[in-house]
């Protein structure tokens, strides 16, 4: 019976316990007055509530035997690849800037998925340039330029 419906609340309880241990370490306010319900009150209440809900979830699982939805894999290969892609893209942006990073990533994505249609590549590049133009020239938002500038 040790499936995700049990493991997930248990992980959250452990996480909550860590957070609960952090709360007493908040500094005391030095310069301003505080209400009778202080800075520690809300986080404490929220954490205790979270732990209670997690326990209730575990109890619910065992007592009521709520049928679990057909076990979809938590992470599939594709979603993991998606995550790697996201992180690589973000890192690339901070290194070479928005424009180049986007061109590389979009092209890389299409190549990786073995897309053959040239139209898709054209759409991808047009999209990247259009966004760059829209942000940088129309909205005057300076997009990341990378470390070389």
């Amino acid at each position: 019976m040790l499936n995700r419906e049990v493991i997930f609340p248990v992980i959250l309880i452990a996480f909550s316990a860590v957070v609960l241990a952090l709360i007493p370490q908040f500094q005391m306010p030095l310069y301003s007055q505080d209400a009778s319900v202080g800075a520690k009150f809300f986080p404490t209440v929220i954490i205790l509530g979270q732990i209670a809900i997690c326990i209730a979830l575990i109890v619910q699982h065992f007592v009521k035997k709520v049928e679990t939805t057909e076990a979809k894999a938590i992470v599939s290969k594709m979603s993991l690849l998606g995550l790697v892609f996201l992180v690589l893209y973000a890192v690339l942006i901070s290194v070479v800037g928005y424009l180049i990073a986007s061109l590389i990533s979009f092209t890389g994505y299409l190549v990786f998925l073995k897309v053959k249609k040239p139209l898709y590549y054209i759409v991808a590049w047009v999209f990247v340039f259009a966004i760059y133009y829209l942000f940088a020239k129309v909205f005057f938002i300076s997009l990341p330029e990378g470390m070389f500038y």
Partner: peptide, 12 residues
Amino acid sequence: LLKTVIAAAGIL
């Protein structure tokens, strides 16, 4: 890509 890199270096 190479061209862009060279251009970037130039601006730098």
